[in-house]
Amino acid sequence: MRAFEYFAPQQLADVIHTLSTAGGNARVCAGGTDILGRLKDGVDTPDKLVCLKTLPEMRYVRESNDGVRIGALTTLSTIEEDPIIRKSFPLLVEALYVTAAPQIRNQATMGGSICQRPRCWYLRGPFDCLRKGGAKCFAVDGENKYHAILGGHLCYIVHPSDSATALVALNASAKIQGSKGEKTVPLEKFFVGPEVNILKENILEDDEILTEIFIPTPSAGARGAFSKSRERQSYDFALASAAVQCTMKNGVCAEARVVLGGVAPIPWRSIEAEEELKGKKLDPKTIERAAAAAVRKAKPMTQNIYKVDLTRQLLSKSLSQIMV
C-alpha cells in the first residue's frame, strides 16, 4: 500500500471541502470493504483518503408517507434487518441476503455498495486498460467469462452491486452532495455506461458524494423478487442476477420494472422485458417471452455465452416467484 494522507472529518462540509481541493486525488472510505482492497492491490493510489465513518448523521432508515430514506452510511446488515425494509421491500432484502458475506454486510454501507468499483480482473490487476486510461480492453480477446453481454462499448466491465440492481428495480433515487450543493437524481440516471464515460461508473464528480437513497412507497399489489447465480455460494459477485418489481392486479401485471445485474456495465434495465409483461397475465408463456426479450440484444463474448441462458433463466425464476 502506498502512503496517503488520512482525514477523519466531523462534518459533511469538511468532506466536500477536502474532496474539492484534492484535484481528483482523494477517495472516500465508508465501510472500506472495496477501497481498502484497491489500496492494498495498488490499483488505486490516492494522495488523500477521507474517512466518512466519523460523520454522525448518515446512518438511518426513515419512513415517511412517500417512501423510505436510507442514509448512505447505513450498513447493509442494518438495512437487511430493518423492519420497515423487510415489510415493504422484500426484493431489496433478498438482494442483500445474497450480497457478499455476513461479516462484509456488517461493514459495507449502502453508499459504498452503490459506488464500488467493478471487479474486472484486468481493472484490478497490472493491466493498463481503457478504464484506467490505457489503450485497450484486455477482456475483448482475453479471459472474459465474467464480462458483459449487454451494454458493453469498448470496455466490458459488469457493475458489481446487487443492491444497485434491486434499487433501480424499486425506482429509487439518489441524493448527491457537492460543493455546488445538493441534488437528487433517479438512481437509474446515476450510473453511466462506457459509451458516456469509460473512466467511471456513475455521475459523481470529484467533489461529490452520495448521501442518501430514497425508495418510493410501492403501489398496492406490488411484488418483487431477486435471483442471482454465484460460483461460490458463501460470497461472490453475480455471474448474473435479475431483479423484478411488478404491480399485480387480478393476476395481470399492471406495471413492471426489470433490472439485470452482473451482465452489463450498469444495472441493466430491460425495457424489452418490461414491455412483454405490462398488461399481460403473468403466466409461464408471458414469463418465457419476457425472459427471452431481456437477452434478445445480448452480445456475448468468447467465454460468456452461458450468461445469455443464465440471465434468461434467472429472470424466469424471479418472475415465477412473483407469479406464485
Binding site: 482475453g142 479471459e143 460460483e231 461460490r232
Partner: peptide, 15 residues
Amino acid sequence: LSERRLIDKNTGVPV
C-alpha cells in the same frame, strides 16, 4: 465446485 486458478492467456499474468 468453485476453485480455479487462471493465468491470462494473452499476457501470462495470473488474474
